[in-house]
Design a binder for these strands. Structure first.
Lengths: 337, 337
DNA sequence: CTGTTAGCGCTTTCAG
DNA sequence: CTGAAAGCGCTAACAG
């Protein structure tokens, strides 16, 4: 049917065009050092033969792979990964780079091998992306190349990192409720001790403080961060002596469970109780009834930031103090508040 | 802080080990042609120096990239992409291959360039993945390399393809309801004329036929495949003269909307009306109340199949008639039926 | 402007 | 078993 192309080389092109290989290389690389005439001539032959440069050879010579590695700790069932990949992909493509992707499935050995594979392939940098904001520890081999941590960080902060600004996110979420006039705001938090739960709680408290409202521990509870957790949270919080008129849920899944409980309790959203989530899982948030107001996690932006940083940060002075960037979580206003 | 490693070559390690470069290469490639003594000797030096082979050079020599390209038409907000990537990734990794990922964002020019980029990089094959089952048309340059179409196909079927078995999926979904004793089963279909809507409807009808039940057009309706579509569908179907006792929804999002409408109508699931979805969007299906029974789309399996096919199908005779594979959609039993 | 030449780092005969 | 040598396809001086 179709034969494997005999792999035309630059020499063949040169021969056919009656020029030297150097010239061909020059037109290939858009070097201005070529007369329009020969240039056209060569281009002609190239098109005719359907020549394609072989990146391996070029790479060997120039030592530039034009590739950047993306290592994910796990591609969870959450849709977060796609946004990270999209962001990284778009930014990479815009700069003529290609993405090498490896998923470690949280296996430490795979991680080590993955780093080696990328080193061997001379990637121009590695992005190590976690599926939720957390501290990580990486093999030392990672230091052989410029790396940026996405949605994670190392305890000693000696690697550049980009994560969501959980505190501000929590504050904005709470303030959104405050601005609607709510003064008793419940917070159904994740019970896991992670940056997201700490940060959002801190933001919640900061918002209260900004409004000169006391922090009432009776208004916050902690559960597993899924629908059932949100469901339980509502029953607990709404049964307090002085129940909240608004609910800040740690994430959209919990908000989904909260919706169910609220409905069972005969409470309407947002009329009786306003609710705001976190994460903006489109699939969920936009389709709940009523559509859920929530905070968007900046996955796309983090992916973008990571490759741009990698491609720009060649300045060794920067490495002395790796940036620890926090990106904003935009408020997505819908009908639940 | 950390210097760029001077890039040790095979020559350097040959010198240090007091052997020829050929020997080093041989131990690197596990060639049996080396005496255990020298072998050990060389390995020692390699470990000591922290030598890493340079894949570009090896690639240039051997013409094997050990890479396979994954082109996605768009990484939608659906979580499907992650499963495809995971499946492909796991299969590739198992065979020592690495994934090159490019997302075209549905841009035809990007697609052409993407294919070229992968060709230049000598990938061993390309997977072109769509985000939902559909017919596609690809640039002819794709024929320069072995390709497999994932969740899509070309009209003339001259490229291998792997897609979900929509018909069987629709049939199993319907039979699941039939087996529960339901005899009037509503089908809320997607109003888009796509393989999924045609196939699932065909499956629905086949199941009815197998039970000797007449096909009643009054029992099927078509809407946009989101929550609001499912919501509308319920109102329409349940108001018919002889309403259904079970609902087969085109997808989980529609089922989610159906839940809301059913609840408004005071109908309990599955007691009053059973409902089954399609897609198994974990995030949704598992967390609805009650958890939704649904059919799983085989994204992971398709990703796996695609790379395994690519890595195995070098036989030119196969290319004469490219396989058009359909993978099963497993039934995910939960509490809604 | 353009041809020639010397490798990039690695594998693979080809002789020992 | 193991050196030596010849490139893989391309770029980057270096002379014209």
């Amino acid at each position: 049917m179709m034969r494997k192309k005999p792999s035309v080389t630059i020499h063949e092109i040169a021969r056919r065009a009656g020029v030297g290989v150097g010239t061909v290389s020059r037109v290939l690389n858009e070097s201005a050092q070529v007369s329009p005439a020969t240039r056209e001539q060569v281009l002609q032959v190239i098109a005719q033969v359907g020549y394609r440069p072989q990146s391996a050879a070029k790479m060997l010579r120039t030592r530039k792979s034009h590739a950047i590695g993306l290592i994910t700790d796990e591609i969870a069932s959450t849709p977060y990964a796609v946004d990270i990949i999209r962001g990284a992909q778009d930014a990479a493509w815009a700069q003529g780079k290609i993405l090498l992707a490896i998923n470690t499935n949280k296996n430490a050995n795979v991680l080590v091998t993955a780093i080696e594979a990328m080193l061997d392939r001379q990637v121009e940098g590695i992005i190590y992306a976690a599926m939720y904001h957390q501290a990580v520890t990486l093999p030392t081999s990672i230091h052989a190349i410029s790396t940026v941590l996405l949605d994670c960080y190392v305890e000693d902060r000696n690697l550049p990192s980009v994560v969501p600004d959980e505190v501000t996110g929590g504050r904005v979420a709470t303030e959104t409720l405050l601005q609607k006039g709510h003064r008793r705001i419940g917070f159904i938090n994740d019970f896991n001790p992670i940056p997201a739960s700490f940060g959002r709680l801190a933001g919640y408290q900061a918002a209260l403080a900004a409004y000169n409202l006391p922090f009432d521990p009776d208004l916050v509870c902690e559960y597993p961060s899924d629908a059932s957790g949100g469901y339980q949270g509502v029953y607990v919080l709404m049964q307090r002596a002085n129940p909240p008129s608004a609910l800040f849920c740690f994430n959209d899944r919990m908000a989904m469970g909260a919706y169910d409980a609220l409905r069972e309790l005969g409470l309407r959203i947002p009329h009786d109780v306003a609710v705001i989530g976190f994460d903006n899982q489109e699939m969920l948030a936009a389709h709940l009834r009523p559509p859920l107001t929530t905070m968007q996690l900046p996955h796309y932006a983090m992916g973008e930031w990571a490759v741009n940083y990698l491609l720009g940060a060649t300045d060794p002075s920067v490495q002395a103090n790796p940036p620890q960037v926090q990106l904003d979580c935009p408020l997505i206003l819908r009908a639940s508040v």
